[in-house]
């Protein structure tokens, strides 16, 4: 099986990685770059735990080949806080109690951040729609929705 050398930017840092053809972006982040904040929950694009931003848009990183990311810009949950300062969304989800086991949280944060980036004042329906591809088994979701509303100033 062939290997490919790719360069990409992850959380603002230029990376050079050798990846086999069948390696997904998820596997590369976790296994090659040690960025284990992005989680593997189903490997089939259903649960959203592996959601990262690829060139500014959220994707299931289990559904992207690493080799396709040559030249790409990737942001993972580790890249949300800047200089130790949490993203307002991270602050908000702490305040509203939208975190329990925490396994879905990285994907939820990325999906929600992407929503706020493209639509700073989403409706409640739009929030629920935007995170409907992120399964959470602990919280019952409403506190996550509250957190997004809080950042949007629509609560």
């Amino acid at each position: 099986m062939g290997y490919h050398r790719i360069t990409l930017t992850v959380n603002g840092v230029m990376e050079l990685v050798d990846v086999p053809s069948n390696m997904t972006l998820l596997q590369m982040l976790r296994e090659k770059l040690g960025l284990t904040g992005t989680k593997n929950g189903c490997a089939s694009g259903e649960c959203g735990a592996c959601t990262v931003m690829l060139n500014g848009e959220p994707v299931n990183s289990c559904m992207v080949l690493a080799v396709e990311c040559d030249g790409a810009d990737v942001v993972t949950v580790e890249g949300l806080a800047k200089n130790g300062q949490l993203d307002p969304l991270q602050e908000a989800i702490i305040e509203t109690g939208g975190v329990q086991c925490g396994f879905c949280t990285p994907g939820i944060l990325i999906s929600s951040r992407a929503l706020l980036n493209r639509k700073p004042k989403p409706t409640e329906f739009e929030i629920r729609e935007a995170i409907s591809g992120n399964l959470c088994r602990c919280t019952g979701y409403n506190r996550i929705v509250e957190a997004v509303k809080k950042v949007a100033g629509t609560e």
């Binding site: 694009g45 959203g48 959601t51 690829l54 848009e57 959220p58 994707v59 299931n60 559904m63 992207v64 999906s111 992407a114 929503l115 729609e129 935007a130 409907s132 591809g133 992120n134």
Partner: peptide, 12 residues
Amino acid sequence: IRTVASYQLRNR
């Protein structure tokens, strides 16, 4: 389109 899977999947 809006009924297909999830937003992040529709980016692929």
